[in-house]
């Protein structure tokens, strides 16, 4: 029983309790390890090809990181609550094409002169559709009594299927051309949409680690019976958690739209696995009750750095899967180590 507060889900995180050794302190500080891993990666890729150490590459990495971190933080919250959301990748594609249809009809119609208003409506459509799918997930879990894995597998199939049907498999273009114009870097390597994502993640961090919303989420994932006995409305909170996850996926769907200037039904397919990988690498436990937003943010950063690094190094990007698998194995091992070292009897 000797870990520190750092990785414990205690959002207070104020008092650092005795650490019996320096080693234990270090392995228990997932964020610190991740930061070191990431810095080593950047150094390594830069040594292979010095172009890697450039604003241009940072810009590319951030463009990949932003949508991934959105769905990964949503996924993190679901996982902290003891659930899993497999539908996020499908929601990305689904919201992307639905809002692309909406924007195209507006832009070709009554709002042709107001591209930014059309884009704002596009965001709104993504948000609403994402929230709705999240709501359906929670209804399936709370009332149809499906386990989260199955419930979200159902919506995964429904969303990706509908996206293909509605689009006939082809991308949906014809919205405001200003979309792509928003993608280039604005401050340093940060584009405007990426900066917005940073703000969204900061807000989520506060709600997860500093507010009642997060406290209830951890409590439910830690011991849902105790949470209910303490008077927490568990069903209502679970509903909020899945709706938030859907919302994040919807925002990611819009981010892809901005990047591509079109919505594609295949966008986001399989991204739930990247999100779960980022969450696990970030030190969260799939059993619930454990996780940090900062860990997930770094986990997502590491994944996207690997992608760009392999491309710039001229290595087949398919190697990414192998690298990610190794990272997951290491993260899970650390998790298990901490349990034996730090678990109370």
């Amino acid at each position: 029983m000797a870990t520190t507060e750092t990785h414990s889900p205690n959002p207070a995180g104020t008092q650092v309790v005795v650490a019996s050794s320096r080693f234990k302190t270090l392995i228990s500080n997932q964020q610190f390890i991740l930061l070191i891993v990431w810095i080593l990666m950047v150094i390594g890729f830069s040594l292979i090809n010095h172009i890697f150490f450039s604003v241009g590459v940072a810009e590319n990495i951030l463009l990949d990181w932003a949508p991934l971190v959105l769905i990964a933080v949503g996924e993190l919250i679901v996982i902290i609550s003891g659930g899993i959301d497999l539908s996020v990748g499908a929601i990305v594609g689904f919201t992307g094409v639905i809002s692309a249809f909406a924007m195209r009809s507006l832009y070709e119609g009554s709002l042709a002169e107001q591209p930014y208003l059309v884009l704002a409506i596009g965001v709104l459509v993504c948000v609403i559709v994402g929230l709705l799918v999240g709501l359906i997930n929670s209804l399936l879990i709370n009332y149809a009594k499906l386990v989260p894995f199955i419930a979200t597998l159902v919506t995964l199939g429904a969303c990706s299927g509908m996206a293909l049907v509605f689009t006939k498999g082809a991308p949906v273009m014809g919205g405001p051309r200003e979309a792509i114009a928003l993608s280039p870097a604005w401050i340093g390597p940060f584009s405007r949409p990426v900066l917005i994502v940073v703000v969204v993640v900061l807000i989520l961090w506060a709600f997860v680690h500093k507010a009642r919303f997060g406290r209830y989420t951890f409590a439910i994932g830690s011991n849902s019976f105790a949470a209910r006995a303490a008077g927490i409305n568990v069903k209502r909170h679970v509903t909020k958690v899945y709706m938030l996850s859907g919302l994040m996926a919807g925002l990611a769907g819009f981010f892809f739209y901005l990047r591509l200037g079109s919505g594609a039904p295949t966008s986001g397919l399989g991204n739930e696995l990247d999100a779960i990988a980022a969450v696990v690498i970030g030190g969260a436990a799939l059993t619930g009750g454990v996780g940090r937003v900062s860990g997930t943010v770094l986990g997502a950063l590491i994944l996207t750095t690997v992608t760009s690094g392999l491309i710039i190094s001229g290595v087949d990007p398919q190697w990414k899967r192998v690298v990610v698998a190794a990272l997951i194995a290491i993260a899970a091992t650390l998790q298990a180590l901490r349990k034996t070292e730090g678990g109370a009897s």
Binding site: S8, A12, S222, F225, A230, G289
Partner: peptide
């Protein structure tokens, strides 16, 4: 108030978080 057998607390939360659970 009820204290259930073996399941009254959320183990991942701090002592004070448990004491104040549901009435933060």
């Amino acid at each position: 108030e009820t204290l259930y057998q073996d399941s009254g607390l959320a183990p991942h939360l701090s002592v004070s978080a448990n004491v104040f659970l549901g009435r933060e």
